Computed example of a mutant assay.
Amino acid sequence: MLDTSALPGRRSIGQIIGRITIYAMLLIFATYYLMPLFVMLSTSLRPLAEIKSGSIIALPREITFDAWVKAWGQACIGTKCDGLSPHFWLTLKVVVPSVIVSTVLGMINGYALTKWRFKGANLVFGLMLFGCFVPYQAILLPMAQTLGTLGISNTPLGLGLVFTLYGIPFTTLFFRNYYVSIPDDLIKAATIDGAGFFATLWYIIVPLSPPIIVVTVIWQFTGMWNDFLFGAAFSSGAGQPVIVALNNLVNTTTGVKEYNVDFAASIIAAIPTVFVYVVAGKYFIRGLTAGSVKG
């Protein structure tokens, strides 16, 4: 007798139940993880009077963007009431160059450590790898003294230098592990044709590097943008990055606590990292699966 359960397009009751269970679990977990975002977004769009009189998970009866306007340009942070906008643009000016510089230096280091090996290369890589595991707190005082000696303490340049230096060990690790899988014959062929260190890097290595570049840029950007410790330690006043300013905004109370403004400010501070993941998230996964974390 023919077993119809094995025919294409026919599923057993057990398979159907298993599929339904999987989707139900995915829906439950998605709801669980998205609920805080829903609460933040709905609260930021409601007037303060409605927040006090209604449920925290209720949809807004009256949608207003007043909290967003205040969070961006009017909320008080310390003694100034300029909102998050100055700190947002300052953070962008600090983070973008730091990401670019640390990524480029990591690329050069990874290339040199894998394809232009020199005496002591493993020792150098080991020391740089050790830098990935040094606790942030251990370098605060030496770094503060260094920035003071250079005359760039409490400046955007000083903060960007800290971000860059602490990011180089990670970018070196990513690029080094990725370049290990590139055949050495490509480098030998370029060398025979007369290409030097940087010519080989530019014409051979860089065209093969987009997956790991995306991984590194996303890693660096999110880490620098979301950093609080370095921002609080190496900046002050109007020079503080957006995450530190957000903390000060939430903790600055002048009368009634405006939860809608706090939530709107939190979403504004998170928009750049969310945007980066939405735009380049699939390339981030491709970069990881292409060998960027293999070693």
Rank of each mutant, 00 (worst) to 15 (best):
A199G: 15
F118E: 03
A30G: 07
G291V: 06
I182W: 08
L246D: 11
L141V: 14
I63F: 11
I20Y: 12
D184E: 13
I187R: 10
L246S: 07
S266Q: 12
R19S: 09
P135D: 01
N177K: 05
L59G: 07
W116K: 11
D184P: 09
I51G: 04
P60Y: 08
K93P: 04
A71P: 13
T289E: 11
D185K: 14
A24P: 10
F275N: 00
V101F: 01
Q137H: 03
G231S: 08
P97C: 03
Q220V: 04
P135A: 00
T103Y: 02
F29G: 00
D66Y: 07
R61Y: 06
Y33W: 13
L105H: 04
F133Y: 10
D184K: 14
S292A: 12
P135C: 00
R286L: 10
T289H: 04
E50Y: 01
I192Q: 05
F284L: 14
M224L: 07
P210Y: 10
V180W: 01
G106D: 10
S42T: 11
V124L: 15
G231K: 08
K188T: 08
Y166W: 02
Q15S: 14
M35P: 00
I16V: 13
W116A: 04
V217E: 03
W219P: 00
P36E: 02
I187H: 11
K70P: 03
I100D: 02
I28Y: 09
T164V: 06
L127D: 00
G14R: 15
L7K: 09
L92W: 11
F263H: 07
V293Y: 01
I28C: 08
Y23H: 14
L26M: 15
L84M: 10
F133V: 15
T200G: 15
S266I: 12
L249S: 09
L246Q: 12
L123I: 14
L147V: 09
L201W: 12
L37D: 00
K115M: 07
A30I: 14
K115D: 01
I182D: 04
G167Y: 01
T21G: 15
I285D: 04
I63W: 13
W116R: 15
G158N: 06
V94N: 00
Q15A: 15
Y166M: 08
V94F: 00
L147A: 06
I108M: 14
L41W: 01
I56H: 05
W219H: 02
V69C: 06
G126T: 10
S181G: 07
L41Y: 03
G255R: 09
P210V: 10
K257F: 12
P60V: 09
G295Y: 03
L48K: 11
G78H: 06
P86C: 03
F65P: 05
K115S: 04
L90A: 06
W89L: 13
G83E: 09
F29K: 01
D193H: 08
V134N: 04
A49H: 05
V217Y: 06
A6D: 02
D185Y: 12
F198A: 01
T43S: 12
F65A: 10
A245H: 08
V104K: 05
I13W: 07
V279N: 03
G9N: 06
G167R: 01
Y136I: 05
T91Q: 08
K119D: 00
G158P: 09
G110W: 02
S98A: 15
L157Q: 08
G255F: 07
L161Q: 01
N260H: 13
